[in-house]
Amino acid sequence: MSTPYRLGLDDDLPQALRELLDSTDGPAFERALDAIVHQRERDVFRTLGQLARDLHETLRRFSAEFARDGVAYVAADARQELEAALEMSAQAANRSLDFAERMRPDADALVQHALAELERTADDDPALPLARRALEFGLATRTALADMVLAQSWQDLSGRRIHKAAAFIGNVESALLELVRLTGELVGEEAHGTAPAVSSQADADRLLAEFGF
């Protein structure tokens, strides 16, 4: 009978594992190995679950800080804050556009009236400087209004970035909850049916609670 193969590191192994390696009972060895691997998996998934919970709590604290600072939103989470910022910037841009659209006809009319006045005013007429000044002002106002309209483009550009950031946060939250669901299943805790789509802080909290987080 040949000498059993021995691992070089077995002096560092726990007694139980050393005995197991020396065992000649194949099925017992397989069962014990499965148990060890399963225990390791549980530890890994518990750790992942803890990490997921910590990350989720961090997101929730982030939202709470906004609420505490006086921004009154019923469900204050980062995604909603970004959407609210987007909405506010759109409102501000639209108010500026309202103003520009309201003033443009007045500026055009002033230019036209000033031009007409200049045509029929004699060189020595005391109204001439005023007509010239009105024309300059009308033209400058028209240019300024056009610039103001153009400046609102930044609402569109910043809005698209906000959309991307909000979508990213949504993806992180969904991935996080999927991770929590998977870790819950793998450590033997049953989900109640299939995981529903998660779209709000309340959904997130409910799902986390189902898995004991």
């Binding site: 309209v149 609102q152 569109d156």
Partner: peptide, 17 residues
Amino acid sequence: VDDFSTMRRIVRNLLID
């Protein structure tokens, strides 16, 4: 055609200009 109403208004204004 634009999903942002602000941008549609801006383009409209530019075209009117």
